[in-house]
């Protein structure tokens, strides 16, 4: 595979992958004396499904939190769409077009499914407080317009029947799907999925895989995901970053990563003789 080509490459299944969308350069993240991430660099290309894997505590979620602006790394640079990103609050990062889902579902329990997904579009809504208070003109048009877009996502993820159900009442698998819907509603350039398949049964996993592939295919969304299910990771992703103890130990196509001795060592251990 030609990783050095700046214009991208073509995947095994024939999809065109574009130039670099996000680049992490020498990221180091410390919590007090603990180094969660040590000097990691990798890039995410336009249109690609990029997986981050590693054993528990390897720093995968911290990495995702760095990308989504929740943690600010002590060293290193984050480049997005060709610009260096300065220190930003998470809501500013969201406005750049980065959306995410969470490892432990972080939906708004008191609101209906529809309202939850509508919150995903907050970054795209422009009408002011007063126009909303009067529910007149711009605010009403905007509400209806966004509702239409949200309904498309509801159709796409096949959750029409629970549209008006409060999220707190939904089963786990559906909550995960609603969370994906909320992230999609923002029409992100880059979608971060933190263990989208955790705690699901086989059927739900298959559904979720299908949705992830469809999202990538239909909307052309770039996806970065963390997942523990190796079968899923190897099937879905175009390139994989492997982390262990906060360090990058492998990076490449699923095939390359699978045969990397460091990766085998980290996952299976190696005899010291």
């Amino acid at each position: 595979m030609n990783q050095m080509n700046p214009d991208g490459y073509t995947t095994a299944d024939g999809r065109k992958i574009g130039p670099v969308l996000m680049e992490m350069k020498n990221i180091t993240l410390r919590f007090g004396g603990v180094k969660a991430i040590t000097d990691i660099s990798f890039d995410i290309r336009e249109g690609e499904i990029r997986a981050i894997i590693g054993p528990n505590g390897a720093g995968k979620s911290s990495m995702l939190n760095v990308i989504s602006g929740f943690y600010v790394p002590q060293e290193g640079e984050v480049w997005f769409k060709g610009h260096r990103r300065g220190p930003m609050r998470p809501y500013q990062v969201a406005r750049l077009g980065i959306a995410r889902t969470f490892q432990n579902i972080a939906l708004f329990d008191g609101m209906s499914v529809l309202d939850n997904i509508m919150t995903g579009r907050l970054t795209l809504m422009k009408s002011g407080l007063f126009s909303q208070a009067m529910w007149w003109g711009r605010a009403e048009r905007e509400e209806t317009g966004h509702r239409e877009k949200v309904e498309k996502i509801i159709d796409f993820l096949e959750i029409q029947s629970i549209r008006k159900t409060p999220v707190g009442r939904l089963p786990y698998g559906l909550k995960k799907r609603v969370e994906l819907a909320r992230a999609l509603a923002a029409e992100p350039r880059l979608l971060l999925l933190d263990e989208p398949m955790a705690g699901m049964n086989v059927e739900e996993k298959e559904d979720m895989c299908r949705f992830i592939l469809d999202v990538n295919d239909e909307f052309g969304t770039t996806i970065a995901l963390i997942e523990h299910d190796m079968g899923v990771v190897m099937d879905l992703s175009d390139r994989v970053v492997v982390m262990d103890y906060g360090k990058k130990i492998g990076d490449g196509t699923p095939e390359e990563v699978r045969n990397n001795p460091d990766v085998i060592n980290a996952y299976l251990g190696v005899s010291h003789d």
Partner: peptide, 28 residues
Amino acid sequence: NLTRGTVGRKWMAIRDMDIAAEIIGVNP
């Protein structure tokens, strides 16, 4: 009107889970 629209959703997002709200783009 305020509570059924965008402003209301922002408020409820902050109420239900403020960290998630900030990450999806609500300015706390």
